[in-house]
Design a binder for these strands. Structure first.
Lengths: 190, 190
DNA sequence: GACGTTAGCGGACTCGAGTCCGGTTCGTCA
DNA sequence: TGACGAACCGGACTCGAGTCCGCTAACGTC
């Protein structure tokens, strides 16, 4: 693992700053990759070499926010962090994750829908899945892997976008409803 | 509502037949709309006028299979059709729907991922949602609308594809696991 | 059977994502 | 400090989705 070259590092920062500016001004979907490259003063090849595709660019921009949540899960206070019972941690996760997705909806949407299956391939998703699996397993939930995936499918940006924008649901209600559903899933079936 | 023009009807059938041939031979993702148009002996504009986009073409090809399942739900025998208790009907639906998705995976995938949110906008999806909502409501499940969407999110082609292809899960196990999860969701939370 | 209306047709066109590769710059080692 | 190789740069290029609009032919009317 060698250190990142100076020009590469500079261009990476330029691209992220340019993308942030353009996305803020005109929305994620309304900005082309050519425009990002131009705004960053960089060639298109550079963009793609580093970020893979438009979804990868979104992932990079989300990185910081996601790290914060991951940190809170790993060594923050309960109920999100360690120490609380699994059910409480699970509902805390649902609430915190929904909050994150709702505030970064366009970016998450782009990161998850840039290509079919993109959602399931991000590094962040592997983390959320691992965490949910662990909590369900800890609560002796049967089929914990499957149910973790099921819960996360319901938290997908596409679905959240639909609830929030098409059905005009309120984030608070959504959080409550999904937390309750998560509790139903974590329970052993009688 | 006027009757479909003769040339339009002829071209519709030609396009569907051509698409079916090409998709069978080279996979849904490996066929371009130009090729479908050429194989059907029809212009590209005709394709798009009638089917909207590649996802719409997939929807049209799925139509018959979906109608069969819808028929079975509306007036087939129990447990899928009316007569059985809601929980039994729900697990029967999960099994039947998974079966349908698994056997037409590429087509369903195309119909659901051709554009972001496409899955939630198809007519068929409205039917499945309505049915699940009805069953959950009938069983006095709280937040029945939300939970119906959650269940269907887990049955999305993208997710099923991942379970089946990336994780090499067996369809039978998947059916069993998701049926059990559906039962957890239909239950009133203690 | 001729005529006007209009839905439907089709292929050239636009637009953006993603690829490719010749040229350049950086970091290293003598 | 100079030279070498690897990593990186960038913009021209390809490829496919989806649009547009002048033209054609089907259907209803007389």
């Amino acid at each position: 693992m060698v250190r990142e070259r100076a020009d590469a590092a500079r261009n990476r920062l330029r691209v992220l700053a340019a993308a942030e500016r353009l996305f803020a001004r005109r929305g994620v979907a309304g900005v082309t990759m050519d425009e990002v490259a131009a705004e960053a003063g960089v060639g298109k090849g550079t963009l793609y070499r580093r970020f893979g595709d438009k979804g990868g660019l979104a992932v990079a921009l989300l990185d910081e926010r996601e790290r914060e949540l991951q940190q809170g899960i790993l060594d923050g206070g309960p109920p999100l962090g360690p120490g609380a019972p699994p059910a409480a941690r699970l509902t805390a996760f649902v609430a915190a994750y929904l909050e994150l997705v709702a505030t970064q909806l366009d970016l998450v949407l782009m990161s998850e829908t840039s290509s079919p299956g993109a959602r399931l391939r991000t590094g962040a998703h592997a983390f959320w899945r691992q965490h949910c699996r662990y909590l369900l397993r800890d609560a002796n939930t049967p089929e914990s892997e499957l149910r973790a995936d099921l819960l996360l499918a319901g938290l997908a940006a596409e679905q959240v976008h639909h609830w929030l924008h098409d059905e005009h649901r309120d984030l608070t209600d959504l959080t409550h409803g999904l937390s309750t559903a998560a509790l139903a899933l974590i329970q052993r079936h009688p």
